[in-house]
Write a protein that binds this DNA or RNA. Structure first.
Length: 409
RNA sequence: CUGGGUGUAGCACAGUUGGUAGCGCGCGACGUUUGGGACGUCGAGGUCGCAGGUUCAAGUCCUGUCACCCAGACCA
C-alpha cells in the first residue's frame, strides 16, 4: 500500500467521544471510522487485520473439516418463534423491522435458529452426519449501552460454528477438537499466554459452557483462577457446587478482569428439538440431532489485541495479524529509488510511505499504526549497502543488507 | 433504563453582563527546510446538534428534542 494513494489519514488527537484505548488508537491510526455509538466502519488497515484474524480461524477450522457459508442477516421470525426467542421478553436485544408488504423481520443477533432451520433441508439420515458449518457474519444486538470502543458494539463481526451429530459421544469428541483449534487460534493471534478456557454458565441443558477469557484491565468479566491457572472460572459460576465439581478451593483462587473472546456450548437438543431437526438412524428410527455451537468475536478480538498491545506511541500488532509487515521509508534520492524497488517486489506486505513529508512524521505514523518493522533506506544506510530496521515491539534497531530485506517478510 | 457530563470548522478547544464567531492541529498555494510530527507569508473551510420560543438582536437566555461520553444496571 502506498500512503500517497490511500484516503486514510492519521489523527494527532483522538476524537473526544472515543474514550477507550482500543477505539482511540484504532481511530487515530486510521484503522476504523466511527459511525455512531457501537457502530464502526473498517478502513483498509482495519479490514486487513480483520481478514488476517479470519484467515487464522479459517485455517484452524478447515483443518477440522468445517465448511464455510454465509447466512443472511435478515431473519424470518418463524424459526425464532418456535424456540421462543423472537420474544422481546426472552431476547431483549433484537433489532426488528418490517417488510414493506407487512410482516416483521429481525436482524440476526446470532444464528442458531436459521442454521438449524436451513439444515432441515439437507440432513435426513445418519449418513448425512456429522456436519460442521461456520460463517463470519455481522451480528446486530441492540445493547442498551455500547462501550469500550469496538469491544462492545451494536453491530459486530462474529465467527459462529455449529456442529451436528448423531450422538453425544460424537458431539463431545468434536467439542474437544474445537477446544484444541481455539487454543491454537488464540496462540496464533498473539493472545496465547493470557487467554484461558473458562468455566461459565451452561444454561439449561448443560451444567457449564466454556468461555475463552483474555486478561484485560478494561474487560467486562470477572474470572477466578488458581496459581497455575489449571482452574479458571467465571464469577457467574463461583459457588460451592462449582468449586466441588472442579476440585478447587475458594481461598486458592485469584480474582481478575477479562474480556470474553469466545464461547463454546454443547447445546444438545436445545434448538434441534423445537425446530424438529431429525435424522433416520440405521434401524430406521427417527432421532433428534445433537448440536454444538462455537463462537469467536472477531472484531472484539481485534479490539482486545489493540487494547493489550500498545504503548504511548500507538499500536503494536503481533506479526500474525498486522495489516502489513513493513513500514517502508526512503530518504534521499537513491534511498527513495531503492525503497521503490523493494516495495515493487512486495506490494502486498509493505506500507510504503511515499508521502512528501518529513521523516519524523513518517516515523511517528509507523509507530502509531503499529507495523512490526520499520525499514529506512537512505543515502546514509546505503553507504554500507544496508537498511535500518526497527522492530516496533522491542524498539531494537539493526542493519540489514538490502538484498536480505525480504527475509523480514 | 437510573445518575452525572458534553454537543461551536476534518480533529482538539476558547467564546466575558446577549451585539452578527476565534485559536492550535490538519487542509490549499508559494518560499525556505529535509533522519523524529519544521518555519514563514497568504488562503479556503461554520445553517454554533436539531426544533420552537423570548428579544431590536441568541453560540450565549427559556422549552422541547436528538446524539455522544462516563458510572451503574443489563449482556439472552
Amino acid at each position: 500500500m502506498r500512503l500517497k494513494n490511500t484516503f486514510i489519514k492519521t489523527l494527532r488527537e483522538a476524537p473526544k467521544d472515543e474514550n477507550a484505548k482500543n477505539g482511540a488508537l484504532l481511530l487515530r491510526a486510521g484503522f476504523i471510522h466511527k459511525e455512531m455509538a457501537g457502530v464502526y466502519d473498517y478502513l483498509p488497515l482495519g479490514l486487513a487485520v480483520i481478514e488476517n484474524i479470519k484467515n487464522i480461524i479459517r485455517d484452524e477450522l478447515n483443518a477440522l473439516g468445517c465448511e464455510e457459508v454465509q447466512m443472511s442477516a435478515l431473519q424470518n421470525p418463524e424459526p425464532w418463534e418456535k424456540t421462543g426467542r423472537f420474544s422481546d421478553q426472552e431476547v431483549d436485544i433484537w433489532f426488528k423491522t418490517e417488510l414493506a408488504s407487512g410482516g416483521e423481520l429481525g436482524l440476526a443477533p446470532t444464528h442458531e435458529e436459521p442454521m438449524v432451520s436451513m439444515l432441515k433441508t439437507y440432513i435426513s439420515s445418519y449418513k448425512d452426519l456429522p456436519v460442521y458449518v461456520y460463517q463470519f457474519q455481522t451480528k446486530f444486538r441492540n445493547e442498551l449501552r455500547a462501550k469500550s470502543g469496538i469491544l462492545r458494539g451494536r453491530e459486530f463481526l462474529m465467527k459462529d460454528l455449529y456442529s451436528f451429530h448423531t450422538d453425544e459421544a460424537d458431539l463431545n469428541d468434536f467439542y474437544t477438537k474445537v477446544e484444541g483449534a481455539y487454543k491454537r487460534v488464540f496462540e496464533r493471534v498473539g493472545l496465547g499466554d493470557c487467554t484461558y478456557e473458562t468455566f461459565a454458565s451452561g444454561g439449561i441443558f448443560s451444567k457449564y459452557s466454556h468461555e475463552y477469557q483474555t486478561l484485560l484491565d478494561v474487560g467486562e468479566d470477572t474470572i477466578y483462577y488458581n496459581s497455575n491457572k489449571s482452574v479458571v472460572l467465571n464469577k457467574e459460576v463461583l459457588n460451592d457446587e462449582t468449586l466441588k465439581d472442579l476440585g478447587a478451593k475458594r481461598e486458592d483462587l485469584t480474582e481478575d478482569t477479562s474480556a470474553e473472546v469466545a464461547n463454546i456450548f454443547k447445546l444438545k437438543f436445545k434448538y434441534t428439538e423445537p425446530l424438529d431437526l431429525k435424522y433416520t438412524d440405521e434401524e430406521n428410527h427417527l432421532q433428534t440431532v445433537y448440536m454444538g455451537c462455537y463462537g469467536i468475536g472477531v472484531s472484539r478480538l481485534m479490539g482486545v489485541i489493540a487494547e493489550k498491545y500498545s504503548d504511548d506511541k500507538g499500536l503494536v500488532w503481533p506479526k500474525s495479524v498486522a495489516p502489513f509487515q513493513i513500514y517502508l521509508v526512503g530518504i534521499g534520492e537513491e534511498g527513495t529509488r531503492q525503497a521503490e524497488e523493494f516495495y515493487a517486489k512486495n506490494t502486498d506486505k509493505i506500507i510504503f510511505d511515499d508521502r512528501d513529508v518529513r521523516p519524523g512524521e513518517k516515523f511517528a505514523d509507523s509507530e502509531l499504526m503499529g507495523i512490526p518493522y520499520r525499514v529506512v533506506i537512505s543515502d546514509k544506510t546505503l553507504a554500507d549497502g544496508t537498511a535500518e530496521v526497527v522492530e516496533r515491539a522491542s524498539g531494537k534497531t539493526s542493519k540489514i543488507s538490502i538484498d536480505k530485506l525480504s527475509d523480514l517478510l
